[in-house]
Write a protein that binds this DNA or RNA. Structure first.
Lengths: 114, 114
DNA sequence: ATACTTACTTACATAAAGTAACCTTATTAC
DNA sequence: GTAATAAGGTTACTTTATGTAAGTAAGTAT
């Protein structure tokens, strides 16, 4: 007895992409393949969660993990076709945020911006 | 010293919209104004969380709450302009899920669908 | 007065996220 | 050989968010 009127695929997709950090990680990887520490620094996410989330996304077929046995070892994360197919979603999201999102004064470092 | 390379507006927007249930609620309201119990049933979300999330979204200027003192009282939730402006994001998301999301067999109620 | 409906709240258990310290493999520095 | 550094994690622990169930408040309807 499923009362839900929401498309189950949409629901599942939303669960994957809107999980905390997942969207920002994908958005970051849309800029190109990157290694662990680069993403960690860019998003200010902890290693623990980045590791966990990258595993989730790899498991969902959105992220690909490549090991280059150089010295020191280089591990690059990139998007699969499925991941890259999310680009339009994020483009629209960027449009929306640039029009509708205001930052509450917070920087406190540059009073001239307000 | 903000090392983050992500646009703060994008980050903030993502936090709002990708919070658990927020996206599904907005998507649901894109179909038109609805009352509490309708959303509750459609999304299979608990009253506790729906109440909390609607308040968040109202606070962010995405959702509007209208009280009609009928009998019994009717309270309708709808999207503001800011909320409706998210439509293209969800359209792209729908496209992505319809192409890339597979449902793992789960229904168990209708074996003919597999 | 009692019951019913809608729209919430409260209280409590569980799960996820955040933080910090530690581990592993390899490489160079002393 | 021992220490120090670096990448890419993992473990242990605290805090916050989510899920579940039961309860409340206002306004009828009987």
């Amino acid at each position: 007895m499923n009362q839900s009127s929401v498309c189950p695929r949409f629901e599942k997709g939303m669960r994957i992409v809107s999980k905390r950090w997942a969207g920002l990680i994908i958005h970051q990887l849309l800029k190109g393949p990157q290694r662990f520490c680069t993403i960690e620094t860019a998003l200010q996410i902890s290693g623990r969660l980045l590791s966990e989330r990258l595993k989730d996304l790899e498991h969902e077929g959105i992220v690909k993990r490549d090991v280059y046995p150089e010295t020191p070892v280089r591990i690059e994360y990139s998007l699969t076709d499925k991941g890259r197919a999310l680009a339009p979603v994020f483009r629209e999201m960027e449009k929306w945020t640039s029009v509708w999102i205001e930052l509450d004064e917070e920087p406190a470092a540059d009073p001239l911006t307000k």
